[in-house]
Amino acid sequence: MRKIDLLFAEYGESHQNPTNKFIHWICVPLIFWFILGFISLIPSAHVAVLYYGLISVVSIAAIAVVSLYYLKLS
């Protein structure tokens, strides 16, 4: 078994409690957005996006890296 499969199996076993699942459903996205918010504070160039305003290039790079990581896992 690959290491990532083992990690996901352990994660799945430890997250069967409905309360734990609910807390993770709320907190994991919040943690991601807080980290992304802190990353956006890194001084860098910005890209103007219609209806969203300015988005940091570093934030776009962070989203791309995280997306590629999860695509690779799947």
Results as ranks from 00 to 15, higher is better:
residue 1 M to E: 08
residue 1 M to F: 06
residue 2 R to A: 15
residue 3 K to A: 15
residue 3 K to T: 14
residue 4 I to F: 14
residue 5 D to W: 00
residue 5 D to C: 02
residue 5 D to N: 04
residue 6 L to Q: 10
residue 6 L to V: 11
residue 7 L to T: 03
residue 7 L to G: 05
residue 8 F to E: 12
residue 8 F to W: 15
residue 8 F to M: 15
residue 8 F to T: 06
residue 9 A to E: 06
residue 10 E to W: 06
residue 10 E to P: 00
residue 11 Y to C: 12
residue 12 G to P: 00
residue 12 G to K: 11
residue 12 G to H: 11
residue 13 E to W: 07
residue 13 E to V: 12
residue 14 S to C: 11
residue 17 N to Y: 06
residue 17 N to T: 04
residue 20 N to M: 15
residue 20 N to F: 15
residue 21 K to C: 10
residue 21 K to G: 08
residue 22 F to T: 05
residue 23 I to F: 10
residue 23 I to L: 14
residue 23 I to Q: 09
residue 24 H to W: 02
residue 24 H to V: 05
residue 26 I to E: 04
residue 29 P to D: 01
residue 31 I to Q: 07
residue 34 F to Y: 13
residue 34 F to E: 08
residue 35 I to P: 00
residue 35 I to S: 05
residue 37 G to K: 05
residue 38 F to R: 10
residue 39 I to M: 01
residue 40 S to R: 02
residue 41 L to R: 05
residue 41 L to M: 11
residue 43 P to W: 05
residue 43 P to N: 10
residue 44 S to R: 02
residue 44 S to D: 07
residue 44 S to P: 02
residue 44 S to T: 08
residue 44 S to Q: 05
residue 45 A to V: 15
residue 46 H to K: 14
residue 47 V to W: 08
residue 47 V to E: 03
residue 48 A to V: 15
residue 49 V to C: 03
residue 49 V to T: 03
residue 49 V to Y: 01
residue 49 V to L: 02
residue 50 L to N: 07
residue 50 L to K: 11
residue 50 L to W: 10
residue 51 Y to R: 06
residue 51 Y to L: 07
residue 51 Y to S: 07
residue 51 Y to T: 02
residue 52 Y to D: 12
residue 52 Y to L: 15
residue 53 G to P: 00
residue 53 G to R: 01
residue 54 L to M: 09
residue 54 L to Q: 14
residue 55 I to L: 02
residue 56 S to A: 04
residue 57 V to M: 02
residue 60 I to V: 13
residue 61 A to F: 08
residue 61 A to T: 11
residue 62 A to Q: 00
residue 62 A to T: 01
residue 62 A to P: 00
residue 65 V to S: 04
residue 66 V to G: 01
residue 66 V to A: 04
residue 66 V to C: 02
residue 67 S to H: 13
residue 68 L to I: 13
residue 69 Y to I: 11
residue 69 Y to D: 07
residue 69 Y to A: 13
residue 70 Y to M: 07
residue 70 Y to I: 03
residue 72 K to D: 07
residue 72 K to R: 13
residue 74 S to V: 11
residue 74 S to Y: 13
residue 74 S to N: 12
